[in-house]
Design a protein around this nucleic acid. Structure first.
Length: 398
DNA sequence: AATCTGTTTCTCCACCTTGA
DNA sequence: TCAAGGTGGAGAAACAGATT
């Protein structure tokens, strides 16, 4: 059997064909629920892979009015299974099946979930389930997004732009015969697929429409995909984030391994922004002995400077949110939008490394929350009974 | 198990707007 | 004036729940 924890030795993607499918398809509501779980996956750690929500939050997300109805929904989703088949030389090598959600428990006003081990493993590099891209398969809202991801992302291995003829693209996306008008195809298929890939992977993908001539109204014949800039890994990819930060100071450091371990430690112990802020502080204020100053800065948080007025209001959302959880969902949506609207702006993704969202979920009535890093400032005032305020400010230099 | 009934989702299209 | 861009909605299909 293939080693599920480390399939590196199999040169997996070159040697094997694989397919992944479910016994019963997941409907919109189930996908919405899974997306909620996915966001929470960011705050899972090795010792505690349980995800929990207040019962009222989960009821309001799914628009149910009783726990009995919720349990019916959960029992139904638990009955859905993922199947996979791996082929070598066109012969079946291994196949298998696993559930998506292992269990739920209702206890004292909260609902607890355990995801299947296979899904958690799919977030860990070089495991069998990460090669099968199980996380993308489960969490992406549309099945065709998974197909596009599998086809497209490997093509970026040695190039930054990929051109795909419209016919070929429709074939990949299972839409050869439907959506004859390009406008409809773009709206219902292409944009959704891109959105899924940007939301559920570390890749920041965009596209251009290639036309027959220079006129804006010419026929679209192909799509040029562009990989803009990498996000700092997915939620679980702390090592990737540590490497990224290490690269900023690498040239000033003699003991690289020790510094790597130190950065990794502080990302886990504090958060990504904490380390980034202190690295920037040291690089801006010192020219020699960087290593020593950085250790000091990380220990005493010297880079944590006071707020400035260099921020400009970018999003304001004043609305009634029944629970802090719903507020958090909306904030998340705004942040994704900010991230996609501002070119080369991906700092928002780094918030996932901090305990940012945990704090927002715990907001109480009339409580204010003010968060600042060097590219974004987020202000929230939460009101249970009346309208709450979400304000997102962007640093003027971004 | 078969039927019906109301709801959601998917696909396509008529019609309108926009800009070269 | 033309074709792409955009909107809303019709009709079909799929689905879920209730009833027989």
């Amino acid at each position: 059997m293939l080693n599920i924890y480390n399939s590196q030795q199999f040169n997996f993607l070159k040697k094997h064909n694989f397919s992944v499918f479910t016994n019963k398809s997941l409907n919109k509501k189930e996908k919405k629920f899974l997306k909620t779980l996915y966001i929470s996956c960011g705050i899972i750690d090795k010792n505690n892979s349980e995800i929990s929500y207040k019962t009222e939050d989960i009821l309001s997300i799914l628009n149910y009015d009783s726990i009995a109805r919720l349990e019916k929904f959960l029992n139904n989703i638990i009955s859905k299974r993922v199947f996979y088949r791996i082929e070598e030389d066109n012969k079946l090598l291994q196949n298998g099946s696993f559930g998506i959600i292992n269990s739920y428990s209702v206890y004292k006003g909260k609902v607890y979930f355990l995801l299947s081990e296979e899904i958690l493993l799919s977030f860990v590099e070089k495991t069998l389930f990460s090669y099968l891209k199980i996380d993308k398969f489960i969490f992406m809202e549309e099945n065709f997004s998974y197909n596009l991801y599998l086809y497209l992302i490997p093509l970026f291995y040695n190039q930054k732009e990929v051109n795909i003829e419209l016919d070929k693209l429709k074939n990949i996306l299972n839409a050869e015969t439907s959506y004859e008008r390009f406008y409809d195809f773009e709206k219902y298929i292409l944009k959704k697929a891109i959105e899924d890939i940007v939301t559920f992977s570390k890749y920041n993908l965009s596209y251009y429409k290639m036309k027959t001539g220079k006129n804006i109204n010419n026929k679209v014949t192909a799509i040029k995909f562009i990989l803009n800039n990498k996000k700092p890994g997915n939620y679980f990819d702390v090592k990737y984030a540590a490497n990224e930060l290490l690269n900023m100071v690498k040239s000033h450091i003699t003991n690289i391994n020790e510094m790597y371990e130190l950065i990794l430690l502080y990302i886990v112990k504090r958060n990504y922004d904490y380390v980034l802020l202190n690295i920037k502080y040291v690089l801006a204020n010192y020219t020699d002995n960087i290593e020593k100053h950085l250790k000091r800065a990380l220990l005493y948080d010297l880079g944590n400077t006071e707020k400035t007025d260099k921020y400009t209001l970018y999003v304001e959302d004043i609305a009634h949110f029944k629970t802090p959880f719903i507020l958090q969902m909306n904030l998340w949506r705004h942040l994704n939008k900010v991230s996609s609207e501002i070119p080369d702006y991906d700092d928002v993704n780094r918030l996932y490394y901090s305990d940012f969202f945990k704090k927002i979920i715990k907001l109480k009535d009339k409580e204010e929350f003010d968060f600042t890093n060097d590219s974004v400032r987020i202000f929230i005032k939460y009101n249970v009974k009346e309208e709450s305020i979400i304000r997102i400010y962007i640093h003027k230099e971004v």
